[in-house]
Design a protein around this nucleic acid. Structure first.
Lengths: 221, 221, 221, 221
DNA sequence: AATGAATGAGATTTCATTCAT
DNA sequence: TATGAATGAAATCTCATTCAT
């Protein structure tokens, strides 16, 4: 009898969207300027609301920060695992795919900036650091370590120390995300990093280092 | 009446040491808590002087920060260059030496923390970022790029894209310094990174990836 | 279709009761925490309505406060006067009755808390203070003064300074109301005051002080 | 050899005087407007310093308040006890003396305003209320109760319930202090209370009520 | 030179009040 | 009418910086 409400009232829609709008604003500002150097009012302003509104949704700037980290992470945790779970094929290909994928889906998005924030604030927010380690770093490490271990087990890879190899694998990726949100964002010096190219070389070099039977020597690419 | 001072009086010595003591204090605190979150008074206190004294030597907290970056860098810039300049021998060995050396002489010292600060503050201090890029990143890149290029030129290395290879080389090193001053400093999660081992694996993997004639396959380590 | 409402609908009854519910809520909260320390929203919440509704009935927190004082007072002003007007009998008995009555009908009810609020806020709300003096303090004083004067005139009481005697009479009553809403409400210290007993002693002592022919000396109680 | 420093430097003298200056300013403002309605900055301004200076000496407005209550009380606790301790003579005279004395030395001074503050804030600061009860109310009660009990024991007074008699005694005094800092401070209504006269009548009435052998009936004063 | 008390601009947070729904 | 999301003025508190000693 009543026409189905096509959408909730704008006011209602706003209310439900507010927390996410504030979190988005906070993410971009915290990535840009750091937690301490970002004023609450700026966050509110970027979200298009007033100072007071921020505090309707988050009890303090610190709680906003914690909420931001938590919700940003939960969005990304599942991704990687799913990617790898059902994969059939060579570990070499899998590695290449994972690195490329991660860059496109995380590193190259605003969420990548979280790494920068966490590096900067880990010591000021140990609980969050623990959370980040538990939810992101450890699982990622586990995942990559698993790939390498499977490669070694199947004879595809040489036997190398797995955990250390993972750090070697992660390093350049981290290097690029951080660069993108620090020096890279200043856009003034020399040629910027070309992430796709770096990943390509990274895979070429690492795989040659890992593979039991490396491809015959020729110039890659 | 006063004996001729063979060495400057302790007071005198103290006075001359002040700026450095302040810079040291600032370095450790900025690394620990970040620039914005560190109070001037804390810096003074850690240096063993009063708030006012800080301002006798540095015009502002920001100037202190800039001075800190500048002097920390100039101390380390020459080092690497000198190391490499006169080297005679294989580039493979040189690379291994440079990485190990850098870790021992920079990465593993308080100065390593500067990377963390710069990553966190680059966008807030673009001039410093530029300075850091010009004085540290670019030269380092140049240096490592030179080594790789020499290796390629001599036929020791395969022809790979030099600049990208440098990023791959640098990534794991950066990963380790940052970790040491962020999550690693919280000392609570799983097994900490063993930097020597990581460097060993990094060299093993990278060199196999680079070398035109890799060593016959056997388990490294 | 709708049956003729024998009584107003609950909704209607509710609506008409709103202002009083808000005033009741405000009274209890202002007594408890003071005017400045009570938030409007708390008042609304205790009255079971939303913040906005409060402002439908009262233009501001301050107006709410003024309305509260005014309506609380008018409710009690007539009472005392009526009590005394037609009284026939000894002034000694009348005094005893008035004090007991006041305690039961005012002092021991939420309305007693108004004294505490007024003491605390008199200087912040001089008009209200004037109002309170005009409507409560002065009439009460008048009333009690009248009783004492009648007693003196009839020879029942000694000739004492009337106004001062009234203050002496009022003091202990005030002491008890205030205590009930301050220290007494914390319920933690020693034996609480027993108001009935205090009034009994107060009357015993005061009457002996007032009466021209005090009762022969014996232990009261 | 060094001339005895006649006085510390003005700056030094200021520093030592600051806390007291701030407490004095706070006392007068809290008495005037209440705790919640007084702004920190007003306190600082009345003490002749800036906002920030207040926080050099007191961690928060609440701590300032607590310190104020504590130091105001300790100043007055010993007084009463000393007064009574060594007294020789009739309890009737002692009572008269104590009441007059208290009015002159406490009730009629700024410190008297503390009663008003405590009445207003007891429920918001239960620890302070307890403190006030333990340090002021209970000892005072004890003291006056002791006087009455001694009077009863010696046969000077009729046997009356001691504790209740004390409340009757205290009531008018409290009435006067509170009035002085509330309605009385507005100075607009009728004839203000004349404390000396009230005390005189209070003593006259109460003593006639208490004394086993009251003076022969005549107009007092 | 060194100190540290003092300052006041500025940050965080609260809350009376408004107003679109 | 009633709501409660939103506002922004105002309060509390912090801290970089100054300056009299």
């Amino acid at each position: 009898m009543r026409p189905a409400p096509a959408s909730p009232s704008p006011r209602q829609r706003r209310k439900e969207a507010r927390p996410q709008e504030l979190l988005d604003a906070a993410l971009s500002l915290f990535v840009e300027k750091g937690f301490a150097a970002t004023r609450s009012e700026e966050v509110a302003a970027r979200a298009g609301v007033s100072k007071g509104t921020l505090y309707l949704y988050f009890a303090s700037k610190e709680e906003l920060f914690k909420a931001l980290i938590r919700e940003s992470l939960s969005a990304h945790i599942a991704e990687g695992a799913a990617l790898i779970a059902g994969y059939q094929g060579s570990m070499a290909e899998l590695l290449a795919m994972v690195l490329n994928d991660w860059w496109v889906r995380v590193g190259n998005t605003p969420a990548g900036g979280i790494s920068k924030i966490m590096v900067a604030e880990a010591r000021n927010f140990p609980e969050l650091a623990q959370f980040f380690v538990d939810e992101v770093i450890a699982p990622t490490h586990e995942l990559l370590g698993g790939v390498i271990a499977r490669g070694i087990a199947s004879g595809e890879f040489r036997p190398v120390p797995v955990s250390e190899a993972v750090h070697v694998l992660i390093g350049p990726m981290l290097h690029m995300v951080l660069n993108q949100h620090s020096f890279g964002a200043c856009a003034m010096f020399g040629p910027p990093i070309d992430p796709a190219a770096v990943i390509r070389v990274q895979i070429d070099l690492i795989l040659r280092g890992l593979l039991a039977a490396p491809p015959s020597i020729k110039q890659n690419e």
